[in-house]
Amino acid sequence: TEDARKEAKKIIDNGGSPDEAAKFIKKYGLSEDQARELVKRAL
């Protein structure tokens, strides 16, 4: 979702790792793979 993508970008912009961002956005109901893909797109 757009919200999850924004959250991921915010985490990374604040110095978080892509892994942290992926873990965080899994709470939106995404699978591990979906979360990682979304983080990649957010970069």
Results as ranks from 00 to 15, higher is better:
T1F: 15
T1D: 10
T1G: 09
T1A: 12
T1Y: 15
T1K: 10
T1V: 14
E2K: 08
E2H: 10
E2R: 11
E2N: 09
D3Y: 10
D3L: 15
D3M: 14
D3V: 14
A4G: 04
A4T: 03
A4P: 08
A4Y: 09
A4C: 08
A4H: 04
A4E: 01
A4N: 01
A4L: 14
A4R: 03
A4Q: 05
A4V: 08
R5E: 12
R5K: 13
R5Q: 12
R5G: 08
R5L: 15
R5P: 02
K6Q: 10
K6D: 07
K6S: 08
K6T: 11
K6C: 13
K6N: 09
E7R: 06
E7A: 14
E7H: 07
E7F: 04
E7Q: 11
E7P: 02
E7C: 15
E7G: 04
A8K: 02
A8P: 01
A8L: 13
A8I: 15
A8M: 08
K9H: 10
K9F: 06
K9L: 13
K9V: 08
K9E: 06
K9N: 03
K10D: 08
K10P: 01
K10E: 08
K10C: 14
I11Y: 08
I11R: 03
I11P: 03
I11Q: 02
I11C: 13
I12N: 03
I12H: 03
I12Y: 04
I12K: 02
I12V: 05
I12G: 01
I12C: 02
I12A: 03
I12M: 11
I12T: 02
I12R: 02
D13S: 10
D13P: 02
D13R: 11
D13G: 07
D13M: 12
D13N: 08
N14E: 10
N14S: 12
N14K: 09
N14W: 08
N14Y: 06
N14V: 04
N14G: 12
N14I: 07
N14L: 10
N14F: 09
G15F: 06
G15T: 04
G15E: 02
G15C: 09
G15L: 03
G15K: 03
G16E: 04
G16K: 03
G16W: 10
G16I: 06
G16F: 09
G16Q: 05
G16Y: 08
G16V: 05
G16D: 05
S17D: 09
S17T: 14
S17Y: 04
S17E: 05
S17W: 08
S17F: 02
P18M: 12
P18F: 14
P18R: 05
P18G: 07
P18D: 08
P18C: 15
P18A: 13
P18E: 12
D19G: 07
D19P: 00
D19R: 08
D19Q: 09
D19F: 07
D19T: 09
E20R: 03
E20H: 04
E20S: 04
E20M: 08
E20W: 11
E20G: 02
A21N: 07
A21V: 13
A21S: 04
A21G: 01
A21H: 05
A21L: 15
A22K: 10
A22S: 06
A22P: 06
A22L: 15
A22V: 15
K23R: 12
K23Y: 09
K23Q: 14
K23C: 14
K23E: 15
K23D: 15
K23P: 00
K23N: 14
K23G: 11
F24Y: 13
F24C: 15
F24N: 11
F24M: 14
F24I: 15
I25W: 05
I25Y: 06
I25N: 02
I25S: 01
I25L: 15
K26R: 12
K26S: 11
K26I: 14
K27E: 11
K27F: 06
K27D: 11
K27L: 07
K27A: 07
Y28V: 03
Y28A: 03
Y28Q: 04
Y28D: 06
Y28W: 05
Y28N: 00
G29M: 02
G29A: 01
G29K: 03
G29L: 02
G29E: 04
G29Y: 00
G29V: 00
L30W: 03
L30D: 03
L30V: 05
L30S: 01
L30T: 01
L30G: 02
S31T: 13
S31K: 00
S31E: 02
S31F: 00
S31A: 04
S31V: 00
S31G: 05
E32L: 11
E32C: 11
E32W: 12
E32I: 10
E32Q: 03
E32V: 06
E32M: 11
E32H: 03
D33I: 10
D33S: 11
D33M: 08
D33L: 08
D33F: 07
Q34F: 06
Q34D: 10
Q34A: 09
Q34K: 05
Q34P: 00
Q34I: 07
A35I: 13
A35W: 14
A35Q: 01
A35S: 02
A35K: 00
R36W: 14
R36P: 03
R36G: 04
R36I: 12
R36K: 11
R36S: 07
E37K: 05
E37V: 01
E37Y: 00
E37Q: 07
E37L: 05
E37I: 05
E37S: 06
E37M: 03
L38A: 05
L38H: 02
L38F: 03
L38C: 11
L38P: 00
L38G: 00
V39K: 00
V39T: 01
V39P: 00
V39Q: 01
V39R: 01
V39Y: 01
V39H: 01
K40E: 14
K40M: 13
K40W: 12
K40Q: 13
R41I: 13
R41T: 11
R41A: 14
R41C: 15
R41S: 13
A42Q: 07
A42V: 15
L43R: 04
L43A: 06
L43E: 06
L43D: 02
L43K: 03
L43P: 00
L43Q: 07
